[in-house]
Simulated scan of single mutants.
Amino acid sequence: MAEPGDRRTSAVLLGIFALIGILVTIDLLTEYVGVVTKWHVLMEAVLMVSAAFGFGLIWRRLDDAREAARLLERDLDAAREEARRWREESREILRGLGEAIERQFRRWKLTPAEMEIGLLLLKGLSHKEIAALRDTSERTVRQQARSLYLKAGLSGRSELSAFFLEDLLPVRTEGAGAPGGDRSPAPTGTGAAERREGKRRG
């Protein structure tokens, strides 16, 4: 797609070529009526043809730029539509994951504050960011996070994330490393999380 500066330059050149063509045509007609040599007329005719050719080239360039802009706009519209469709399709999945996380938090008997901190930790916020968001001290956030990990039997943030997100990642089945091996995505939900929870309780 042509840059704005290129389009302005092309427009200026287009105007110049059009002006040259008009002036040369007028001059050619005027001199043809008077006494002039054929070579002079031929030279100006060539000049007029050259100006017309340049005019055509610039017009073609502008037309190509307009077509490129139209195609780019079409691609952008398609990308926006695809993003909108993905958000709609993933909304149910994300809602289900959120409900599963909330159920597990209740199983761990977390307080409302610990639940909120757990969600913010899963979103990737730091203790300092969580403290600023909840208008509390970073020390309080750290204490509540430690309480969460203790109740859940987890060592820290990484295990908390893995507890809920492990099932969302694709896993290799046997023979996946060989050519033609299958890759099967793990089922969404908290299957592995629930298995770990059962082992922890056992």
Results as ranks from 00 to 15, higher is better:
Gly5Thr: 06
Gly5Leu: 11
Arg8Met: 01
Thr9Tyr: 06
Thr9Met: 01
Thr9Ser: 08
Phe17Gln: 01
Ala18Gln: 14
Ala18Gly: 12
Ala18Trp: 09
Ile20Phe: 14
Gly21Pro: 07
Val24Lys: 10
Thr25Tyr: 11
Asp27Lys: 03
Leu29Tyr: 03
Thr30Gly: 11
Val35Glu: 13
Lys38Val: 12
Lys38Tyr: 05
His40Phe: 13
Val41Leu: 08
Val41Trp: 13
Val49Asp: 01
Phe55Val: 12
Leu62Ala: 14
Asp63Phe: 09
Ala65Val: 02
Ala68Asp: 03
Ala69Gly: 12
Glu73Leu: 08
Asp77Ile: 05
Arg84Leu: 11
Glu89Asn: 04
Arg91Asn: 00
Ile93Tyr: 02
Arg95Cys: 01
Leu97Ile: 00
Ile101Asn: 02
Arg106Asp: 08
Arg106Cys: 02
Arg107Phe: 00
Leu110Pro: 01
Thr111Pro: 00
Pro112Asp: 02
Ala113Trp: 05
Glu114Gln: 14
Gly118Glu: 07
Gly124Arg: 07
Leu125Pro: 00
Ser126Glu: 04
Glu129Asp: 04
Ala132Asp: 10
Ser137Ile: 05
Arg139Asn: 13
Val141Thr: 06
Gln143Trp: 04
Gln143Ser: 14
Ala145Gly: 09
Ser147Thr: 04
Tyr149Ala: 10
Leu150Asn: 09
Leu150His: 12
Leu154His: 08
Ser155Ile: 13
Ser155Asp: 12
Ser155Pro: 15
Ser161Pro: 01
Phe164Cys: 08
Glu166Cys: 06
Asp167Tyr: 03
Leu168Trp: 06
Pro170Cys: 12
Pro170His: 14
Ala176Phe: 02
Ala178Tyr: 09
Pro179Asn: 06
Ala186Val: 08
Pro187Lys: 03
Thr188Val: 07
Gly189Val: 03
Thr190Val: 04
Ala193His: 08
Gly198Thr: 10
Arg200Trp: 11
Gly202Glu: 11
